[in-house]
Design a protein around this nucleic acid. Structure first.
Lengths: 195, 195
DNA sequence: GATTGAACTGAACGTCCGTTCATATACTGT
DNA sequence: ACAGTATATGAACGGACGTTCAGTTCAATC
């Protein structure tokens, strides 16, 4: 592992996080040992503890970083004005962002139950905050009459589930380009909300 | 564990399966030990091996049983005639069946990567066969002009993801009844496929 | 009441787990 | 060249893991 000067930071180092991310995504948190992660980095198990407090911190830091990135990226998006424009922006953003980080997404959705309670709380708040972004768009569209929704909350959950599902089957060398996938999903989302 | 006469069957006994299902759903396959399962049954760990070959068989039998039940139940459904009728039947069936078995559903979607390769193959074929049921409905509807779909395959995956997502948030004591949820989702699915 | 055999216990097996730490090595700044 | 610090090793820790098995219990049968 590359040396560096000065004391290492409080949070887990990026090399270790990368290795953990790959392995957690492939085999699951509980099934991956610190020795496996160390081997992936090219180091003995003991050395990992210069970069992370413990195994649980690896999982938490992965999820926290992922969600921080998510908000940073969403904040930077040019969102348009009308609810319909904003919904298209959200749809395309969500798909594009998630397709760029299949491992992080997989972990964020599958390993929630392996977070210790206090860590879970932090992550859950962030996750719900993101959901609220979509919910607000849908509510605004319903209020303005642009959308026809039987239930805003359920529509939020349905759209999120539908969009996140893309990561389970999309392959870069597959039949459809990312842009084509975004377009097709936006088409379905738009119709589903009656816009 | 209750005694019985005669030799036990080749597949895992139902008491053990129930305990394993509960624990696997709550904590994940890799995080649950045979001793925990035994404690849930009210027995020592060694006794489990009178009812199952090994831990992996527990997981496989749970998934296989779940999918067998799924096909048996779907076969028994009164499916209607037109693609629209059939799609409504599928939507309502999928939600109702999955809400009745939250633990089995959770395991079937989360623990695929913990199946040994030959077991995974078996389960994957069954899962895809079920997906094809929906895909056939959507294709028939597209061919007959009842549905407007940009891409049949993606619509299949999108609808499945959307419907299965219900199990992650639905609570029996929540705001909406099952029938209400089925109705709302059918409304969204119908619009998404342009019917 | 003796015999059978399934069901269960409790201990043991070898292995792996997360984590710690004394020690050794490599680098940085002087 | 040396001191000082950062980083790595490799062994060790207590404990848990999946699985096996000799021995025990007990309901059902004759």
């Amino acid at each position: 592992m590359a040396r560096k000067t000065g004391s290492h930071s409080e949070i887990t180092g990026p090399l270790v996080l990368n290795a953990a991310q790959t392995l957690f995504a492939r085999h699951g948190y509980a099934a991956v040992s610190m020795r496996q992660i160390a081997a992936e980095v090219g180091v003995q198990a003991g050395a990992l503890y210069n970069y992370t407090r413990d195994k649980q911190s690896l999982l938490f830091d992965l999820m926290k970083t992922h969600l921080d990135d998510l908000f940073a990226a969403w904040t930077a998006v040019d969102k348009g004005q009308t609810p319909t424009e904003r919904l298209e922006a959200f749809t395309r953003f969500h798909i594009a962002f998630h397709l760029d980080r299949p491992d992080a997404v997989f972990i964020a959705y599958m390993e929630l139950r392996n977070l210790e309670p206090q860590n879970f709380e932090v992550i859950e708040v962030l996750r719900k905050t993101y959901e609220t972004e979509l919910e607000n768009i849908l509510r605004d569209g319903k209020d303005s009459g642009e959308f026809t929704l039987p239930d805003t909350k359920l529509a939020t959950l349905a759209v999120i589930a539908m969009l996140t599902g893309v990561t389970t089957w999309y392959r870069d060398d597959g039949r459809l380009s990312r842009d084509r996938v975004e377009r097709i999903y936006w088409n379905m989302v738009r119709k589903a909300v009656g816009a």
